[in-house]
């Protein structure tokens, strides 16, 4: 087991690096898959591990998209004038300007989204259960509506960003795939460590019985704010990258897409299994593959089918794949075996 684990991770990493060459025609879909993975993993930080089911994490995706774009533009041009021209072509970016703007934009997106989560959290973390879900949903919808009225960032038209330098579009696809992959892998490594800390145990306590956790003197609010801010940091960066990948985006359907991506991430996590490290990843892959495969055969009924999928998942399959596995194969989940009374008699280590 101890030798297998590094081998497994190395093989996985090699696969991630090779994937866009194994299936070159699916490069864009693979990049999108990473968005799903990142959003699902971060959603699970609060939803699965902390018991705070947000329906508004998409807010950070949209905000990140706008922040990264605005910063990327602002280092070269006046943003108000730029957005007014609606990408009229007179605005040229050199390669350095493009990449520098994107880099600064992504950093700003991450940091500012973490800040937004911190501030919003002060307001929303007093809400429990369904109120929190509705409050976050409201915040996300409000953000989309406000941005679509904000002419400085292009209003309802959105923003058109410069295209990726060079003529070979495949390069752009590869670039964005690897950018997402790097964020995703870093997030995974981070969470693997994060979930082993005392901090993570504390947020699990909040999930299981927040009143008890408060009575035990945990800094519940502070821990909730930190967790959501970290999640928002990664979501913001993912949103920022998406903006550059999409080139053109608008507020309601692309950036703050509350009822699409905003809810998909929840479904991914439920499909895979809440509150586990791998559940969200597996769920995201499952969901994305099913969606891509069936999409074209559904003849306009895709969105209805997706709504139905949400309902069915929630009603019939809420434990997700990992939860189901844990039920049928408890011995696969190491420590659970210890729960069996006959093992208890063994001395510790």
């Amino acid at each position: 087991m101890t030798i297998l684990r590094p081998i497994f991770y190395l093989a996985l990493l090699a696969f991630i690096v090779a994937a866009p060459f194994i299936a070159p025609e699916f490069r864009t879909q693979l990049a999108t898959l990473w968005i799903f993975i990142i959003l699902s993993m971060t959603w699970d930080m609060t939803g699965g591990q902390m018991g705070y089911n947000s329906l508004g994490n998409i807010l950070f995706y949209g905000a990140g998209m706008y922040i990264a774009a605005v910063v990327g533009i602002a280092i070269v041009y006046n943003v108000g004038e730029y957005t007014n021209a609606a990408g009229g072509g007179i605005y040229k970016f050199t390669d350095t300007q493009y990449f520098l703007g994107m880099a600064l934009g992504l950093v700003a997106a991450g940091v500012l989204c973490a800040g937004i989560a911190w501030i919003l959290g002060y307001l929303l973390f007093g809400l429990r259960g369904p109120y929190f879900a509705i409050g976050t949903l409201g915040a996300a919808i409000a953000a989309g509506e406000l941005v679509s009225n904000w002419e400085w960032v292009g209003g309802g038209q959105g923003i058109a960003l410069p295209v990726y330098p060079g003529d070979d579009y495949e390069n752009a696809k590869l670039f964005f795939y690897y950018l997402f992959a790097i964020v995703g892998v870093i997030l995974f490594i981070f969470l693997r460590w994060f979930y082993s800390t005392r901090f993570a145990a504390a947020i699990n306590a909040i999930r299981d019985d927040e009143e008890k956790a408060e009575a035990m003197g945990l800094h519940t609010l502070r821990y909730k704010l930190i967790t959501w801010s970290i999640a928002a940091f990664f979501v913001g960066i993912a949103g920022g990258i998406s903006g550059y990948q999409l080139i053109h985006f608008e507020p309601l359907e692309t950036a703050f897409q509350t009822i699409n991506l905003g809810i998909f991430m929840v479904v991914c996590v439920l499909l895979g299994g809440k509150g586990t490290l791998w559940g969200p990843i597996i769920g995201a892959i499952l969901f994305h593959v099913v969606k891509e495969v069936t999409w074209n055969y559904l003849l306009g009924w895709q969105w209805v089918a997706l709504g139905a999928l949400i309902v069915i998942t929630v009603v019939y399959f809420q434990d997700g794949l990992m939860g189901w596995l844990a039920r049928v194969k408890p011995e696969w989940f190491g420590e659970r075996v210890m729960e069996k009374p006959d093992m208890v008699a063994e001395p510790a280590e």
Binding site: R198, A201, A202, N204, A205, A213, M216, G217
Partner: peptide, 8 residues
């Protein structure tokens, strides 16, 4: 028990 560590 471990969750009950004195976080304060």
């Amino acid at each position: 028990m471990l969750i009950s560590m004195p976080h304060r």
